[in-house]
């Protein structure tokens, strides 16, 4: 499933409708239909972001809340700035707030990951759609589970959600330099973890054969 409805400056899609800045100008002028258009346009990535950050069964509620809050604080949105990272930052905050009652930070992060993990382990109904083998998929998810929460979060944003660096920085609330350095370390660590994991699987198979 590939979303083609993202319109980024310099990367026009086949959608030749107005860009976000035009829509936002109309929203500021009181045109509510223009906001509905923004909701349609950005709902898919907002839902994916909430789901992979661990919103679970509350994913739609989180996204609805984020769009309402984004509208309510449009007066502080800098005209000309891209809408998507700003929206996704609100989505990420709302998702975190879901787990506020779960207690300590570690417990909250554990809950978020448990919900995201379930999604990542699901298999497509149609096996022809799967581009990853089940073994590879499960190994990747096992590897992600062993990363520290910040490393897992940055990999989730950049690769699983396919956000760019600025968007990832907005979602995570980190400076761009931090996104870059943590991503680099996270990938190195994930490679190590996966290599070790593959070694263990091989050893186990060898033991079975012997």
């Amino acid at each position: 499933m590939v979303y083609t409805d993202r319109t980024r400056e310099g990367h026009p899609t086949l959608d030749t409708g107005p860009d976000d800045a035009d829509l936002l100008a109309r929203v500021r002028g009181g045109d509510r239909d223009a906001y509905a258009e923004l909701v349609h346009r950005h709902a898919p990535v907002a839902l994916r972001t909430a789901a992979l950050l661990g919103a679970g069964g509350d994913t739609e509620d989180v996204v609805q809340e984020a769009f309402v809050k984004a509208y309510a604080s449009l007066d502080r949105f800098r005209p000309g700035a891209p809408f998507r990272p700003w929206l996704l930052k609100i989505v990420a905050n709302e998702t975190r707030n879901l787990h506020r009652a779960a207690g300590r930070r570690a417990a909250r992060e554990q809950r978020s990951w448990a919900l995201a993990e379930r999604l990542l382990l699901a298999r497509a109904d149609d096996p022809a759609e799967a581009t990853l083998s089940q073994e590879r998929q499960e190994a990747l998810v096992r590897g992600l589970a062993r990363l520290s929460p910040p490393h897992r979060q940055v990999v989730t944003c950049r690769y699983l959600l396919d956000l760019d660096e600025a968007e990832s920085a907005a979602v995570l609330g980190w400076p761009r330099g931090t996104v870059k350095s943590r991503l680099h370390r996270a990938l190195a660590r994930l490679r190590d973890v996966l290599d070790a994991d593959a070694g263990r699987v091989q050893a186990r198979e060898a033991a079975h054969d012997g």
């Binding site: 499933m1 898919p44 992979l52």
Partner: peptide, 11 residues
């Protein structure tokens, strides 16, 4: 690919 395979219900 892992990210693309995630099935999040459409809005």
């Amino acid at each position: 690919a892992l990210g693309r395979a995630v099935d999040v219900p459409a809005p």
